[in-house]
């Protein structure tokens, strides 16, 4: 019986010790630059590409809009299953769920785009797109221009892009300023790309590229936290470059 007692006491001691540490992430590698890139890219950078695609379609549509068949063929060429002919009007068009809504502006040669992402990123903004000719566009937004729409973060974008003959979009200039102010911490992130290297294919039949196929963007973070790094895009991967360190990650 003593043996049983000893066995049980030994087991209970084991139970007590087994609960000491259930989980620890001490040895996990933290990469806030990757996290920030994900956050800013999806909320602020990618919408620029979707806005450009929507505008490029709508601008080309204006020249064939009298021909409904050609118009719908063009819509299918861009948006595939996301193209709904009943959403296509002379003055506006909506492509759900990834692109948003584009309308003719009161100003000649300009469009206003309400990106689909407005629903979830807490930055309620529309983009003003100026047609510069030859499928070249200037895309501008400032979510802080209307106080009633500013919640706790805002974005201001100024980008100039164009499509080449192969339907690749090239970014001539990209300047995005993201600001947040929450729980007493204010942070500004500026994302820039001005060497013309950033390029992403135009959407085709509803398929679109989330990330650029090439090019580099610089991230500059200031305020209550600060950091500087770059993100370089390749075909299947992207690279986060910070000083002399570089980390390659799958897209």
């Amino acid at each position: 019986m003593k043996r049983l007692l000893y066995i049980i006491l030994a087991v209970l001691s084991g139970v007590a010790f087994s609960g000491c540490v259930m989980y620890s992430d001490k040895d996990e590698a933290e990469n806030p630059q990757l996290d920030v890139n994900d956050l800013i890219y999806l909320d602020c950078v990618e919408p620029v590409f979707r806005v450009a695609e929507l505008t490029d379609f709508f601008d080309r549509y204006q020249s064939v809009r009298e021909d409904r068949e050609a118009s719908e063929a063009l819509g299918l060429e861009y948006f595939g299953d996301s193209f709904d002919p009943s959403e296509l009007f002379y003055e506006e068009f909506t492509a759900r769920p990834y692109w948003g809504k584009v309308i003719l502006s009161d100003n000649q040669g300009e469009y206003v785009v309400y990106p689909a992402g407005n629903r979830w990123n807490d930055m309620y903004t529309d983009y003003n797109v100026q047609v510069l000719g030859s499928r070249r566009y200037r895309i501008v937004c400032d979510s802080a221009d209307d106080d009633s729409r500013v919640y706790w973060k805002s974005v201001a974008t100024d980008a100039t892009v164009y499509y080449d003959a192969d339907d690749i979009m090239h970014v001539e200039i990209l300047d995005i300023v993201y600001t947040e102010d929450i729980e007493g911490e204010s942070v500004t992130v500026e994302v820039t790309s001005d060497d013309g290297s950033l390029a992403i294919p135009l959407c085709s039949r509803g398929e679109y590229s989330v990330y650029p196929g090439s090019g580099i963007m610089q991230f500059s973070i200031s305020g209550d936290v600060s950091d500087v790094f770059s993100v370089r895009y390749h075909d299947d991967v992207f690279e986060i470059i910070s000083g002399s360190n570089s980390e390659i990650l799958d897209k």
Binding site: K26, E183, E185
Partner: peptide, 14 residues
């Protein structure tokens, strides 16, 4: 938030 990404990376938990 961006701030949270950096603050979170400064600590670990058990």
């Amino acid at each position: 938030s961006v701030a949270a990404r950096y603050r979170d990376a400064e600590i670990y938990n058990k």
